[in-house]
Every structure is written in C-alpha cells, then in structure tokens.
Nucleic acid binder design. Structure first.
Lengths: 235, 235
DNA sequence: GCATATTTGTCCGTATGTATA
DNA sequence: CTATACATACGGACAAATATG
C-alpha cells in the first residue's frame, strides 16, 4: 500500500537514512508530535542526520511510524527551534549553520550572558551555575566528553538564568540548540570542552563572590575562544 | 480546581464571534496556513478577538473557510509567536499577558536595545531608525494613532537592528508581537504614543551623532515610562 | 459520582499545484 | 516539453480526553 521510495546511491548530497530507528518500527509509537520532534532532535544530535539532509514527508513519516500530519506538526516545532529549515514547496532539511550563523549565535550569546552577569542575580540560578560546574567535573572523571559538553550548556544556560527572565532563557535555549548543529561535525569533543571546565569553576567563584567584572571578563574570553575554535573546525 | 470554564452568555468574558469575517465565507480562500495565521493575527490586533477567547477548531475553521488541518498549522505558527496559548486536549486560546509577562518583555527589550545602541552600528539600520521617526510624524499628522504605534514599533525594531544580528531582530519581533496583546485592552492610544514621537526623534539625532550615552539614557527613560504606563493601564 | 455529548488529537486517502529531472 | 516526485490542503474517520447534565 505504501510505496517506499528508495534513494539511489551515489547522489552525493545528504540523504535520509533508510531507517531512522535501530528499533525499526514504532520508534515513537505512543507518539504525539512532541515525541516525534524529540526523536528527530536526538537523531540530529547523534549525527544520524547530518546538516543538509532532506526529510521527505512520506519517507520520514514511514520511518518514524507516524502520519504525515503528525510529522508536519513536529516539523513546525523544529523549524521554530532552528534545527530544521523549510523551503517553500521544496520540503524540510536539516539545517546547516553558515559561519555567519555561528558568529551571530555568539554575538547574541554575548548580549544575553553579559546582561545576565551585569544585572541582579537570582540566587537559585546561582546555585544552578555551581551545579553545572560540578556536573562537568563528574562527566570529565567519567571520560564522557559528550556529557561534558552538555554540562557546559547547562552552565551557560544557568548564567543567563541569573537575569530571571523566562524569555531570555528561551532565547538561550534556542541558541544552544542551534549550536549543536555546528558541533555535529566535530569529531573530537575533548579539546572543545576540557579547557573550559576549570574556567567555568572560576567564573562561578567570581559570581558567588559578587565580582561581576571578573566574571564578565572570563566569560568574554571564553566566548571569543570558543567561537574561534568552532569556526576554524567548521571547515 | 480553579479552571477557567468557558463562560456562559452574559458572563462578560470573551467568546468567539460567530463570524470572523464580515465577508462571511472564504476569507482566506486562496489561502495557506500562513494566510490563516495572518487573518487571525489581524483579528487579534483589531480587538475582534480579545485575550482569553477560546478558538474551537470546528467553528474557527468553518468561519475562516479552511480545513481543520490547515487551521491547526496556523495555530502552531501563532502559538510559537506567543499570540495564542495551547492547552492539551482543551484547545487554543487568545493569550493574555500577565503583569509579569509585560515586565519580562520590557526587561528583555532593555537588554536588546541597550546592547544594540552600545555596539557598532549598521549604517543601513541607522537610516531605518530615521525613517521610522518620519513615519511616526506622518501618522500623527494624519491623526492615525494606531499607525503611530506601528511606527514606534518600527523605530525600536530598527534600534535593535543596529546590532546587525538576525537572531536579535527576530527576538525583538516576537517581543513586540506579544506586546500587541497588552495593547488591545488600551482604548485610547494617543497618550501612549504621542509623547514619544519627539523623544524618538532626539534618540535618532543622538544615534546619528554617535552619542551612544545620550541615546541610551533617553531610551532607558522611555522604556521605564512605557512599561509603567502599560502596567497601570493593564488593570 | 456517573453517563452523555462535545472537542481535541491523530491518522488516512485523495486532489491539486509546483518544482525538478 | 513531458513526466515524475513532492508539498500543500482537504474532508472524513476514530480513539481519547474533557466538559456537561
């Protein structure tokens, strides 16, 4: 009943993997659009779907075991998050970040993180900052550099959360989600995350001591280096 | 359980108008989900749909002359814009902003607008700032206070655009779209917009003269007063 | 508290217009 | 230019959740 459109080999451009789930059918069986979106998010984060991959509605909905309508709802969510790109009458693609995009993400991050450091600090968020530092240390001891990267995201999210603004928090979440697209091309995460573990701890120290200026300077140095590092790896 | 149940007639709370279009059928006949979303946006902006109004899928899709599936796509768009609120298995409502929401929008606006003023200025955006000032002047001469409000939005969007960041621009657009929800309860727009026409012109002067400090101080004064004005009118 | 009616969430199959090969 | 593949939109259907009497 359902015609399976098998991709031809040797096309060169990124293609949708035949099976999006190692479990085969019913990856998101219980699934609402949110679960479908989460499944696709994970596939992108894990590198199963590389930037530029097209996601045809028919093949994708079949692979995930959901209907096209449900898949379209999930697409809407992910397009808004910046993880997918939508071209009129052409379909949906895994977004690929240009160098300008990476630069813009870091520009916006500077605005958000500096504003949060300069303004009044939410004490609960301050604890979260410290928690993220410890989370990163534990991940390093476990040798899990992916988890170190996640902890680093938590750290900077917590920094922005110092401002106590739900809308700024959400913007930060979107920026970090977009950055994951740039990280999928990075094979060795260690040099990207290890150097910053100690720095994050010192930033947390300064924040707890109320030394906004020092915290801000360290943060600025981090953002400059991280951006340069990612941009150079991006080619 | 304090659930806001759908009000009976004469309750005073909002109901879906029977006809969303004076033209009756086929308001968005040619229409895709985008056009449906735009139609709903206008209805909210014009006050035809006040915050709290429920939008049943059946009645709304019939009124707009589109299918349920298409309407749901439009809902997704508007929920992401913050204009509508979605409750699981309960439906979609016109969002109403709390005082905390308004405060958060202004907090974020301060971050974005100050950052844009402080940083390097995109010359094209600087021209847009001036254009918005003139747009506001023309609207006042025409006595169209709604258009004055639109021009004011353009002015502050242009200020943020000085930073040259597409992502900051988009965040600003979302914030201003949310603010429209707070403005629908305002009956007399004149005292909200008239005082700021002259101030905007002076801010533009300072920006063009490269006097960031003066521009920033005027901007800060504007944001403080506008926020207080809106919050006091909001009850 | 229970039974009923309404609405949402999901899914299917089809028709149509558009972009690409 | 023709043919194909595909996105977009429609209407109908059913299960699940919610609201109503």
């Amino acid at each position: 009943m359902f015609r399976r459109v098998e991709p031809r080999a040797g096309d060169g451009a990124a293609r949708l993997p035949e099976r999006l789930s190692s479990a085969g059918r019913a990856l998101v069986a219980g699934g609402g659009a949110d679960r479908v979106a989460e499944a696709l998010r994970d596939l992108v984060a894990d590198g199963a779907l590389v930037p530029g991959t097209r996601l045809p509605e028919d093949a994708t909905s079949a692979s995930l075991g959901v209907s096209r309508n449900t898949l379209r709802e999930a697409f809407r969510l992910l397009v808004r998050e910046g993880l997918l790109r939508h071209e009129l009458h052409r379909g949906v693609f895994v977004r690929s970040l240009s160098a300008a995009d990476v630069a813009d993400v870091y520009r916006f991050r500077r605005v958000l993180e500096f504003a949060a450091v300069d303004g009044p600090h939410d004490p609960v968020a301050l604890q979260r900052v410290r928690q993220a530092v410890e989370e990163g240390g534990a991940a390093r001891r476990a040798g899990d550099w992916d988890a170190v990267g996640t902890a680093n995201s938590h750290f900077h999210s917590a920094v922005v959360a110092l401002a106590g603004s739900p809308r700024m928090d959400e913007s930060m979440r979107h920026l970090l989600a977009e950055l994951r697209l740039a990280f999928v091309v990075v094979t060795d995460l260690r040099p990207f995350h290890e150097p910053y573990l100690e720095e994050n701890a010192r930033i947390a120290d300064h924040l707890e001591a109320g030394e906004r200026g020092r915290a801000g300077r360290l943060l600025a140095a981090y953002l400059d280096r991280a951006e340069a590092q990612l941009l150079s790896a991006h080619r």
